[in-house]
């Protein structure tokens, strides 16, 4: 290894490390510290140790809210999974060349800012929106459905925004799946359904779990979706955190919530790590490959 390469390596790794330390680690630590401080009306926080922030976290009212947020995210993830999995299976039936094009088309709308797209959904779901107009036109309903500002609207919006994050990991694990295994299963007498349940699903589980993580976590944080489509009635964890910092000005509580969310994320990542280790021993994600 020559000297120049060593220098390059030092700077490349050093720069990335300091960037992450400065803009991720330090702020995170600050959040952690703030969660143990005292709330102050004038100066936001007082440098005095307090568990008040964490006590609010375990308040039954808040737990109910957290549960609400979590279940909405989970429902979103399940909906995304139910759409994404069959979609990817169809995609695998296409020739390699077409798959890239379809995936590209899938990504294109996401170049538009998600806020803009949520406004578009508002127009779609509104009382005089496209869906209501269309349904009235064909005579399925007499008066417009009340779809906007409901839990349904929030979940609809979240599912729409987050669907690609379910599709991509599932696609990547499906692509790694050795299709000769399906031939082998067929040879041994497995029907289409049995092949799906016993071979395809278990072997693409890492992709499903990854997709779940990539949907559930952002879904809990996307406060603007809840603001715009749920009319703030169906708060996500992200809304609560945002409110603590901007409206209620209870920084220790907001910080404690942020820490909670990071812990939740770490736990899910650990689950993902375990699952990939267990079910993807052959090829793909494997300790020896890294």
């Amino acid at each position: 290894m020559n000297k120049q390469f060593n220098q390059f390596r030092f700077w490349a790794i050093g720069l990335a490390t300091s960037w992450l330390a400065l803009f991720v680690l330090v702020p995170s630590l600050m959040v952690l510290v703030v969660s143990f401080l005292t709330r102050d009306v004038d100066f936001l926080i007082k440098f005095e140790f307090s568990l008040a922030g964490w006590e609010s976290v375990f308040d039954p009212n808040f737990i109910a809210l957290l549960w609400d947020s979590l279940s909405m995210s989970m429902i979103t993830a399940v909906i995304c999974l139910m759409v994404a999995y069959p979609f990817v299976m169809c995609l695998m039936g296409l020739p390699q060349r077409w798959r890239g094009i379809v995936l590209f088309l899938l990504i294109v709308p996401f170049w538009t800012n998600s806020l803009v797209r949520i406004y578009a959904i508002q127009f779609l779901l509104g009382k005089k929106g496209l869906i209501n107009e269309a349904l009235q036109f064909i005579g399925l309903i007499d008066k417009p459905l009340d779809m906007l500002y409901s839990q349904f609207a929030v979940i609809f919006g979240l599912s729409y925004i987050l669907l690609p994050f379910m599709i991509l990991p599932i696609y990547s694990s499906m692509e790694r799946l050795d299709f000769r295994l399906l031939d082998a299963a067929k040879d041994l007498g497995a029907t289409t359904k049995q092949r799906l349940l016993r071979i395809t699903l278990p072997l693409t589980l890492p992709g499903i779990i990854a997709g779940f993580l990539m949907v559930v976590l952002p879904a809990m944080g996307m406060f603007f979706v809840s603001d715009l489509l749920g009319g703030s009635k169906h708060a996500l964890l992200g809304n609560v955190i945002k409110n603590q910092f901007i409206q209620t000005r209870d920084w220790p509580f907001g910080a404690a919530l942020s820490v909670l969310m990071i812990l939740l994320l770490s736990f899910m990542l650990w689950l993902y790590y375990r699952a990939t280790k267990m079910s993807n021993r052959e090829g793909g994600i494997n300790d020896s490959n890294f």
Partner: peptide, 20 residues
């Protein structure tokens, strides 16, 4: 007859053992 209904079994070149 579909492959899954034939009284025939195959030993694949790649073995195709189920890794999980």
């Amino acid at each position: 007859l579909k492959a899954e209904h034939r009284p025939v079994n195959t030993v694949f070149q790649s073995y195709a053992l189920f890794p999980h």
